[in-house]
């Protein structure tokens, strides 16, 4: 197992095209958090022709609904949520420049096709390791939809958040290939 690739957000087309399914990556910089409720509102705004509360070009969205921050911390536990709930919304955001998504679990064929078409990647964080993931989060600011509570959109600054590339821009899928490698007939 090689060393991790270090990436800094926002991501360029070159950053993304160079990534391959199975690569271990540590991400630093700004990420935006959003789950399905927030995604729905973003798409509603786009449908109405209105401006979004967050930038998309080169950005990375982390699918997470953190637990509340106890005193003295910026955030509670903050591991990934299951990504398929965002499948209905993700292609539209990639079309507008979104370059990365971090979550856990399988994506639909439509999302995988959009990643190839618009050059974006999907990366897995460790589901259920919320206490560990939170260690990489240094700053948190709610930027939209505070009424959604844990599902509000947060702008977070991360330092070496560990993830693994699942789907790359060539259509590879680590969930399929990894399983094949260890399957016993």
């Amino acid at each position: 197992m090689g060393d991790s690739i270090r990436l800094k957000t926002p991501l360029s087309g070159g950053d993304v095209s160079g990534l391959r399914s199975g690569d271990r990556v540590t991400i630093s910089g700004i990420l935006y958090t959003a789950r399905d409720a927030a995604h729905k509102r973003l798409i509603d705004l786009l449908d109405q022709g209105k401006a979004l509360p967050i930038p998309l070009e080169g950005q990375v969205i982390y699918y997470v609904g953190p637990s509340p921050a106890p005193p003295g911390r910026v955030i509670g536990a903050a591991g990934p949520t299951t990504s398929y709930r965002m499948d209905a919304y993700a292609p539209r955001l990639m079309e507008l420049g979104l370059k990365g998504m971090i979550g856990k679990g399988k994506r639909s064929q439509e999302v995988k096709d959009a990643m190839t078409k618009y050059k974006a990647v999907y990366m897995a964080a460790i589901g259920g390791a919320g206490a560990l993931m939170a260690q990489a989060i240094k700053e948190v600011e709610i930027v939209a939809y505070e009424d959604l509570g844990p599902e509000a959109i947060r702008r977070i600054r991360v330092d070496n958040l560990p993830v693994i590339v699942v789907n790359d821009t060539l259509g590879n899928d680590l969930y399929v290939e990894g399983q094949k490698l260890y399957q016993i007939p």
């Binding site: 997470v64 609904g65 953190p66 637990s67 106890p70 911390r73 509670g76 536990a77 903050a78 591991g79 949520t81 460790i126 589901g127 259920g128 390791a129 919320g130 206490a131 560990l132 939170a134 260690q135 844990p150 560990p162």
Partner: peptide
């Protein structure tokens, strides 16, 4: 991953934060 899950449980216990954000 399994090693990180062990580490995660240790952090949660020590720092009094949830093991997983989905409580």
């Amino acid at each position: 991953i399994i090693n990180k899950l062990i580490e995660n449980a240790e952090i949660a216990r020590r720092e009094r934060i949830p093991i997983c954000q989905d409580t």
